[in-house]
Each structure stands twice: as C-alpha cells, then as structure tokens.
Computed example of a mutant assay.
Amino acid sequence: MVVSMAGFTANDAITKTMTGAMNAGQVMLVRGFFATALIALLAWHQGALRKPSHVLDRTLAVRTFCEVAATVSFLFALAHLPLANVSAVLQALPLAVTMGAALVFGETVGWRRWLAIAAGFAGVTIIVRPGFEGFSAYSLLALLCVVFCAVRDLATRKIPTDIPTLLVSTMTASAVALSGALLVVPLGGWTPMTGGEVGALACAAMLLLVGYQFIILAMRSGDISFIAPFRYTALLWAILLGYLVFGDVPDKAMIAGAAIVVGSGLYALYRERIVGRTRPAAESTAPAMAPEGM
C-alpha cells in the first residue's frame, strides 16, 4: 500500500510539473493516451475486452462521467495549489463515501462515525481557510474533486459484477484522454512538446499502472482493515515531494487541518472494524481513491 501511494503521488508531482508547460487538456490527452494503451493491453491480455457491449451500462457511464469531471477539477487545483494541500483535501474522500452511502444507500452509520465525518470536514475547512488571506478559489476545485470521486465510488458499487475491473479502467482512461482532446483548444490550444515532456507524461502513466498493481496486491494479500490506514501515507509522500520538487513548505493551518482529517478517517476505519464492517470507507482504499485518469 505504501509503494502504491508513492506511485500515485509521484504521478501527481510529474503532472503538476507538466501543467506549467501546457494546458490541462493537453496533459489529459497525452498522459491518457499512454495510460489507455498500457491498461488496454493488460485488459486484452486478461480477456477483459471480450464483451464490448458492457460499456453501454448506465452505471458505468455515470462512473466515467464523474471520473472525467474529477480529473478536470483535480488538474486545475493541482496546477495552482501545493501538492500537499490538494492531497490533504483528498484524504476526506473515505469520509465523503461513508456519508454518501448512508444518505443514498441507507447504510447504517453510528453517531461516532457521524462525529468523525463532521470533524474530518472541519479539518478540510481549516485547510481551505474560507474567508482568510490564505484562501484560494482553487481549493474549491479540490473539494469538488472529492464530491465527484465520492459519487464515482458509490456508482462503482452498483456496477454489475460481470463487468471486469480492467474494462472499467480501460473505459475510464480512454474517456479521460478523449475529454482532454476536446479541451485542448478551449484551454488555449496545443503547445509543442519536447521529448522530455512526452517521456515525463509516459512515465506518469506507468506510475499509475504501478500504483494499481501494488494496491491490488495489497488488497488481495492482507486484511483490509489493517491495510486501509496506510492509504494516508499518500499525504506524507505529497509533503516530501512537494518540498523536494517544488520547494513547498506546509504551514501550520495545513498541517493542523490534515491531522484532523487523517485522524477522523482513521477513527472511522477503527469504528468499522469494531462493528465488523469494512464498507464503505475502507472500500475507497481501492485504486480509485483519487481520479484514476490523473
């Protein structure tokens, strides 16, 4: 799980670097092309593409739309905010999924977990700091990304079990790449790329695949209630890479807010283990924690 989080976060760092050289649509298109090629090849090898009619499933369409919307929100937030800040806000995703499962699916959530959810979003408020000098409107895009990711995760649970996971991932990656192609011109047009920039985006796509593979290994070989808390190491990787690559030093408000969010998430996972449940918060420890297309 720790290696997986490192892979996903390194992908974020590369992507943030590239958003300074080209628009978000171009990043989505080029990186999405490589990601689609890699995942589609793996899906073909595993026989997941034998029934293309599965792509017509309505729930899968909802999931794909939310994934594209989450990716766009994430990239714009990532381009204008420190890597650690965006990562800290995204750590509220399991709490958002827990709340959504209670409100949409009627799942039982005790008062302790409701308090954890409230505390977690209070922590997000500290990170975002609405009304203060440190507030950035792009923080709202990070929050919007959490909303889309939560809806995506809830929709994922309703996808028919006969639809292979790799087919879902292939459709997601290709939809993100296509959406990027449609956004290139509205966002300012195509920027000529160097070989190094193409290679960097190809590397980012490969890191996504590494993240997927290691998280699948973790989920299949270990106790999910024990493994789930290690998803929060993504925040540690984000702080480290943010400092080494971009020179970002988290301020006290960001650290305090992130500590509250992580503490709330860990407590919610603990309560789920106490009552003998691993859903829904632990379920968002799957590869789709943050936008897959990113």
Rank of each mutant, 00 (worst) to 15 (best):
Y138G: 11
F76N: 09
A88M: 06
I126C: 09
C145N: 14
A118H: 03
V147N: 07
P82W: 11
G123F: 01
P82L: 09
R112N: 03
A102R: 09
A102G: 11
T108N: 11
F135P: 12
R152F: 04
T108Y: 06
F132I: 00
W114M: 13
P130Y: 12
R113I: 08
A137M: 10
E107S: 08
V104I: 15
C145P: 07
A84R: 01
G134C: 03
E133K: 04
M99P: 00
A119F: 12
Q91P: 00
Y138F: 15
V128S: 03
G134Y: 11
C149L: 13
L81N: 14
L143N: 06
G123E: 04
Y138I: 02
G100H: 01
T125I: 08
N85T: 15
E133Q: 12
G106Q: 11
L83A: 07
L141T: 08
P94M: 01
W111K: 06
L93N: 14
S136W: 03
A142T: 10
G123S: 04
L144E: 10
A116N: 08
V104W: 14
A150M: 08
P94S: 08
A118G: 03
L115N: 01
G131T: 06
E107N: 12
R113L: 11
G120F: 03
T156R: 14
I117P: 06
L141A: 13
I127N: 05
R113G: 09
A101I: 06
V89Y: 00
M99Y: 01
R152K: 13
P94I: 03
A96K: 00
C145I: 12
L83W: 11
Y138S: 09
L140H: 04
W111R: 15
F76R: 14
S139Y: 10
T108Q: 15
A101H: 05
F121L: 01
V124H: 01
V109D: 08
T108R: 15
V146C: 10
L141P: 07
E107T: 05
A102N: 02
L141R: 05
G100P: 00
A102E: 01
L93H: 00
A79W: 03
P82G: 13
L143T: 03
L103K: 01
L78R: 10
C149Q: 14
A116G: 09
A122M: 12
E133N: 05
L81V: 12
I117A: 05
L95E: 03
G106L: 11
R129A: 15
L103F: 13
R113D: 05
L154M: 13
V128E: 02
S136L: 10
V146L: 02
F121R: 00
G110H: 07
V147I: 11
V147S: 09
W111C: 06
L115M: 12
A102S: 13
A79N: 07
T98E: 07
F76M: 14
V147A: 11
F148K: 01
I126E: 07
L81P: 12
Q91C: 07
F76S: 04
